[in-house]
Design a protein around this nucleic acid. Sequence first.
DNA 1: ATTGTATATCGAGGTTTCTCGATAAAGCAA
DNA 2: TTGCTTTATCGAGAAACCTCGATATACAAT
Lengths: 104, 104
Amino acid sequence: MNTIELFKALSNEKRLQILHWLKEPEKHFPKQQAHLPKEVHYKGGVCVGDIQEKVQASQSTVSQYLAMMQRAGLLESIRHNQWTYYRRNEETLQKLAAYLDKEL
Amino acid sequence: MNTIELFKALSNEKRLQILHWLKEPEKHFPKQQAHLPKEVHYKGGVCVGDIQEKVQASQSTVSQYLAMMQRAGLLESIRHNQWTYYRRNEETLQKLAAYLDKEL
DNA sequence: ATTGTATATCGAGGTTTCTCGATAAAGCAA
DNA sequence: TTGCTTTATCGAGAAACCTCGATATACAAT
């Protein structure tokens, strides 16, 4: 867990918002995954396009934000066909919360 | 509590270190406050010079770091004579930890 | 094969951050 | 007053971040 990298990733309004939305994906992305058949359904994951539409930034910006958050460990992803689904990595978030609470 | 501002302030190795040191000031700044008489002693506060000596950065850098952390709410300060004593603002840290644990 | 869609990467311009030395301000000591 | 110490602020150059459009890649559909 690279704390600095994590705090940097969290230091941006839009990235923070994305992370927040992904806490309740079915709530914030109601029409999500119209593409995927249920059996392949990536639990809690939302594709880049749906996120982009909501966050109001260019496609490349959103793609880079998501990649950055994944590098920091905040998100994880899988690719299915042409879509990449991102969801939160709760383990990292838990660890960070514990670090803030106990060590910092 | 401005979350973005807080995360930015935490996104720097040296600032994070200072915050950490100030958790146990008597441990990390043993010869602290030789200047002050006990009755004026600012509990847990450490002066800029002592912090600068330990963090290894220029005087102006350290002064700016401390001011920035104070603006974000991570630190608080009082001035006594020519010294400014900085200590942690535990309330903000508590709130941030709670935010990370519950809301984020 | 060609076209279309979703995502990633590249290159670049503008903005912010990092960090410093120089200078200012504030207060103590002679 | 003059000088000394401590901290804050200013100005600036280098590095990092933000954000975009253009292009590349990967795969599906026709």
